[in-house]
């Protein structure tokens, strides 16, 4: 990707305060966090061109990640087809990541890759729209 627009209106896109361990059957087995859409308006989920989570630089398998808005938790592969699911820029999405055994105590870097097509800014023929980089990363401390 050569050029992508960024519009980081809020200081935090990936909200550090929201990062929590995720429990399955009483055991730590992953983590979750909130993310705000980094743009001045909301978008349909079908405008998401790329999404993924990395923990300390390591890619989490796509099937282990879900995306929730409007009370619906969805696997990532469904997002491009979610043409009626609108993500408001002031309602953060919840990202959940399954990881056996959870995250070890200490500092870790969480990175969200998120690329959106700005669907009203056509920059060329053949379905070519302005790319918007809504990704973010944050270093957070996990506890025992």
């Amino acid at each position: 990707m050569s050029f992508a627009m960024r519009m980081k209106l809020a200081d935090e896109i990936l909200r550090k305060e929201s990062v929590k361990d995720l429990y399955i059957n009483g055991e730590k087995n992953g983590f979750e966090f909130d993310v705000q859409l980094a743009y001045y308006r909301g978008h349909y989920l079908s405008t998401i061109d790329e999404i993924g989570v990395l923990l300390d630089g390591e890619q989490i398998p796509q099937e282990a990640v879900t995306f929730e808005i409007n009370g619906k938790e969805m696997p990532l592969y469904k997002l491009p087809y979610a043409v009626t699911e609108f993500w408001s820029q002031v309602e953060p999405a919840k990202i959940r990541v399954l990881k056996k055994g959870g995250v070890e105590a200490g500092d870790h870097e969480i990175e969200l890759k998120l690329m959106i097509r700005v669907p009203y800014m056509e920059i060329g023929p053949d379905h070519n729209f302005m790319p918007l980089d809504c990704g973010d990363k944050a270093t957070v401390t996990f506890t025992e």
């Binding site: 308006r41 978008h43 349909y44 079908s46 405008t47 061109d49 491009p80 087809y81 043409v83 097509r117 700005v118 669907p119 009203y120 800014m121 056509e122 379905h127 729209f129």
Partner: peptide
């Protein structure tokens, strides 16, 4: 109003 011509994944 916005006119989101590019909102579908594979076509205008």
């Amino acid at each position: 109003a916005n006119n989101d011509k590019g909102m579908m994944v594979d076509r205008n």
